[in-house]
Design a protein around this nucleic acid. Structure first.
Lengths: 192, 192
DNA sequence: CGCGACGTTGATTTGCCTCAACGATTGTGG
DNA sequence: CCACAATCGTTGAGGCAAATCAACGTCGCG
């Protein structure tokens, strides 16, 4: 059932059989359908989500009704509104399924228990978070130092699979441009 | 000597006396002078830095020679090129002292040892990193969804102390605008 | 004093947005 | 099975935010 998750954990830490059991016991399986909202502000988000199948995104809905995608996540990734999850405040971000799929849900109190019983999980998440910070810094740098053309090129290079899997307006909302402008970028690039 | 650091750790985790000793033993004290580079690409960065006095920044120098400030850090904060520190790759970012000050230096191998002897440090850094991710997401969102005026207003509101402590062109490089444009923003705001 | 670092201001250009109109595709109900 | 609406992508005209380039003012410091 939880093979993908356990393998993922074992990339970073070593687990005993009882560790695996305890982790498995803490997880719930949930089917999600395309366009389903897993987290919807201002509800409180007290669950982490590991994706076993499908694709989800984390986005912010601003006052003008525009969606800004902060992250995509596919098989093997975690996704949640981290701030709401850890502070207990109302969520600011939406988490939405972009395809039919399946996720493993981990409630905050279960995770806190696991941090006690399986301390290596602290190390696991520390390492995951390290990598997130590195990516976020890179992305921030891209946004403030390059044009949309270059951001698009890098996106395609870095996530070739997502390029085909996602509609164009979602990629635009991730790059920080309007769908119209991304369309023009692609037209311009095709012209050479 | 390491009071500020120990207090900071104890905000998130509890430490025994021997923990405190071991941590203290792993740290080195280093004086830094204004404009001094602590990390300079492409050298390898294998040290974490806790600031006991002064102010430093993390920045990227692009091909056109423009500096993009990713973070400021003052007393009580850690600063390093996280990617280089953990992967061992050459550094991409500069770390520069903006004032005369003092930092506590922690070498990577010492930190790895500490993670074994004081496992609670995993929890400590996990929590720090959580907070970093939350801030980075907010900042990313600001950059892609608001104008420079609003980013500046939020910066002043969030870091009123830094506003006075830093020259304006550094703030511009943090906000992702040119110094000229930030000057115009301030002039426009003063006019009302 | 005189130089260099920092900030200001203005003219011009450019990247990207807004708005609007128009295909292409998909899916859905009659 | 077709009609129709909804969704998504494309294209163009015009506008605004911010960059670029250049000149000038000011201050602190060797």
């Amino acid at each position: 059932m939880f093979n993908l998750l356990i393998q993922n954990l074992q990339k970073h830490i070593t687990l005993t059989d009882t560790d695996v059991e305890q982790i498995s016991a803490a997880m719930q399986v949930k089917k999600v359908r395309k366009n389903q909202l897993i987290i919807e502000p201002p509800e409180h988000c007290n669950t982490e989500h590991f994706i076993s199948k499908g694709c989800l995104r984390l986005y912010f809905l601003d006052e003008q009704g525009i969606e800004h995608t902060l992250a995509f996540a596919t098989e093997g990734w975690w996704i949640t509104d981290l701030e709401s999850f850890f502070t207990g405040d109302p969520a600011k971000y939406h988490v939405e399924a972009l395809e039919d799929g399946e996720i493993f849900v981990l409630k905050k109190d279960k995770l806190e228990e696991l941090f006690q019983t399986v301390p290596a999980l602290n190390t696991y998440f520390r390492k995951l978070y390290q990598n997130s910070i590195i990516s976020l810094n890179e992305r921030l740098l891209n946004v403030i130092s390059t044009t949309a053309d270059q951001r698009y090129i890098r996106f395609v290079k870095k996530y070739p699979a997502l390029e085909n899997r996602l509609p164009q307006y979602l990629i635009a909302s991730y790059l920080g441009v309007t769908p119209e402008f991304l369309s023009k970028i692609k037209a311009r690039m095709a012209r050479r």
